[in-house]
Design a protein around this nucleic acid. Structure first.
Lengths: 226, 226
DNA sequence: GCGTAAATGAAGGAACGGCTCCACTTACGG
DNA sequence: CCGTAAGTGGAGCCGTTCCTTCATTTACGC
């Protein structure tokens, strides 16, 4: 019973004032998430939107619904970035460009940084679409990796899941440094890209089981960065 | 007025029952911090120690005092690890071994992982000693880096502060994967070490200002990993 | 033993965040 | 216009966490 989740929903449309408020809430949530991460208090979002807290809860009964509404566009852009990287003529450039681009998206939006390291159970259509975009990006990523290896640019023992760990690491860096050294992530990522290059690559520990990483992303809430 | 901070303090010694409780609190805090990070609720620690919450607050008026008491030994080991790495005959092996060792310490203790990415204002002797050990490790680290560069193993454009970002990244990885893929950090670190090697190194973005990273570590609390 | 200062923890205050109730307001079809 | 269903937000409940108060218990010097 999560009510109407989109202005163009098949359900009975919202009254004009309600639709206006819904838009304001989503916009406020986008700003608040970007600045403070996915766990911003609801009352902060309500305050920014100029509505009561109850209105936020009425329109978005759980955090996942609000997150899905707030990040719909950004997740679309995320999936499109993967598709574009795939179209890049030089596969290794496509690979590097994609990694840089996604990490840059994380650095510009703390909520998005978090979002890329967490999955949601699809409790409503908006959340499901979010996860679909994630899946689409992932499928393209597998191809990006395959072609980058074939081109000789990417080391052969690179595992697609290495990107998940990279995103988690980058989310940590971005969260910690956003206020004080907002470009710190770039150097870290360039180090990683140089490590991913085929030249001079040396043996690595085995990657974690894919299942384990999926479970990692399924963690609901946890506190970690002190 | 933060009471007696060590059983061997110059102040009037604790009564035997109080000393026993203090020891139990520190032991409980070590376990709780290791499992759940630096922000474990005080009542959780009190419960584990089998004392009332008030007793914890009486002995350790603020979180920093308790953290300092709980991590005294580990910070000593941290400083010693740097000194030992310095004694290693092959400077590049010393460098790699130290990075691996410190990251392993982070992976084994979520509280310690957090601790290495945060500094505390020295409000009492125990905290001051903690920060002294951190400083000692840092001084040795500068030498480790210098010698590793001189030996030709470490790339010349490596900056000592790169380790801070690495510790932040690793803390994020460890926090996210501890429950599900506890060895995930190793592969990430090996990638980084290969990137740090002198062979085939390519240009990097400039590192952030050192001041900015110090300010980063001075952040008090923040929530980030969702 | 015993008097006393030290030590204790149950209880409670204050701040916060999620979430709900419900009396009041507003849009909008007729 | 106006009746009504939709919409709203202040007020308040519940759970959590930090921290303090204070009546009771305990260790220890004599």
């Amino acid at each position: 019973m999560w009510g109407v989740t989109s202005p163009t929903s098949p359900e009975r449309p919202l009254r004009t004032d309600a639709a206006r408020n819904r838009t304001a809430i989503v916009a406020a949530a986008q700003r608040a998430f970007a600045e403070a991460g996915l766990q911003v208090p609801f009352d902060e979002i309500a305050r920014r939107a100029g509505v009561g807290e109850a209105t936020v809860h009425r329109r978005f009964p759980d955090r996942a619904s609000l997150i899905a509404a707030a990040f719909g566009d950004k997740m679309t852009a995320y999936a499109e970035a993967a598709a574009q990287a795939l179209a890049e003529p030089d596969p290794w450039q496509g690979f590097c460009g994609y990694v840089r681009r996604v990490c840059a998206m994380q650095s510009g939006d703390r909520g998005f940084a978090d979002l890329l390291t967490v999955t949601f159970a699809a409790v409503n259509p908006a959340v499901a679409q979010l996860e679909e975009h994630r899946g689409s990006a992932l499928r393209d990523w597998l191809t990006i990796v395959r072609k980058a290896k074939a081109s000789g640019g990417l080391r052969k023992d690179f595992h697609p899941d290495d990107m998940i760990v990279l995103l988690i690491a980058n989310a940590g860096v971005v969260a910690a440094t956003a206020a004080t050294a907002p470009d710190a992530w770039q150097r870290h990522i360039e180090y990683m890209l140089q490590a991913f290059a085929a030249d001079n690559s040396r043996p690595l520990p085995a990657p974690p089981a894919h299942d384990a990483l999926l479970r990692t992303m399924r963690r609901t809430q946890s506190s970690s960065t002190p």
